[in-house]
Simulated assay, not measured.
Amino acid sequence: MNWRKSTYSGGGEGNTCVEIAESVTHISIRDSKAPACGTLSVAVSSFAAFVEGTKRHSRG
């Protein structure tokens, strides 16, 4: 898998965030501080809905 971090990652080494890896059907998510501890995989459509909901919520 090709993992990438958010551009909003904080910390000196950018390790205080989550990482995601994309496939055709799923998005995999893991903790950047403990990548070997497991991943969460969700359907692309569910992840897109989550991101859009987060954007709406943050706008107030």
Score class of each variant (00 low, 15 high):
residue 2 N to F: 13
residue 2 N to S: 12
residue 3 W to N: 04
residue 5 K to H: 09
residue 5 K to N: 13
residue 7 T to P: 03
residue 7 T to Q: 05
residue 8 Y to E: 10
residue 8 Y to K: 11
residue 9 S to V: 09
residue 10 G to S: 13
residue 12 G to S: 06
residue 12 G to C: 03
residue 12 G to V: 05
residue 12 G to N: 08
residue 13 E to K: 11
residue 15 N to C: 04
residue 15 N to G: 05
residue 15 N to I: 01
residue 15 N to S: 05
residue 15 N to F: 00
residue 15 N to P: 01
residue 16 T to E: 14
residue 17 C to E: 03
residue 19 E to H: 04
residue 19 E to V: 00
residue 20 I to V: 15
residue 20 I to L: 09
residue 21 A to F: 05
residue 21 A to H: 05
residue 21 A to M: 06
residue 22 E to K: 08
residue 23 S to L: 13
residue 23 S to Y: 13
residue 25 T to A: 15
residue 25 T to C: 14
residue 26 H to M: 14
residue 27 I to F: 07
residue 27 I to W: 02
residue 27 I to R: 03
residue 28 S to V: 07
residue 29 I to F: 09
residue 30 R to H: 11
residue 31 D to T: 03
residue 32 S to L: 07
residue 33 K to Q: 02
residue 34 A to H: 12
residue 36 A to C: 00
residue 37 C to H: 08
residue 37 C to R: 12
residue 38 G to L: 09
residue 38 G to N: 04
residue 38 G to D: 03
residue 40 L to V: 11
residue 40 L to F: 13
residue 41 S to V: 02
residue 43 A to T: 07
residue 43 A to C: 08
residue 43 A to M: 08
residue 44 V to Y: 09
residue 44 V to H: 14
residue 45 S to F: 04
residue 48 A to M: 04
residue 51 V to S: 09
residue 51 V to K: 07
residue 52 E to Y: 12
residue 52 E to K: 12
residue 54 T to V: 10
residue 55 K to C: 01
residue 55 K to I: 03
residue 56 R to E: 08
residue 56 R to A: 11
residue 60 G to F: 08
residue 60 G to C: 03
